[in-house]
Amino acid sequence: MTDTLREPTFLILTALAARPQHGYGILRDVEEISSGRVRLRAGTLYTALDRMSSDGWVAIDREEVVDGRLRRYYRLTDLGAARLATEVERMRANTRAAEQRLRARPIGGTA
């Protein structure tokens, strides 16, 4: 059985799903995806990237030097994409179940 992804991990994988991104881009995208609710910091991001790279979920896509600083882009690997898809399916199943239960709930509820 696959463990549930923690939210920062889920959001980082989501941020990388459409295109490779550099560290700062991931931080901003995670904030946007979560509607400002989740604001990752660099320490958390790079600890997560370290683990995800060990698991083979992300990989370095390319490196650039911008204004004399190194900018490294990360991409989602096929393994990472499959893991994200599994998590999405799990969440979708939970959401469906919740919707069905809510629809079955008597109007007004019980006291």
Partner: peptide, 17 residues
Amino acid sequence: DHREQHGEEMIDVLVAA
């Protein structure tokens, strides 16, 4: 090893943020 691999890009991210 982490500093050597990610130190400069972490500085970039931290300063930008």
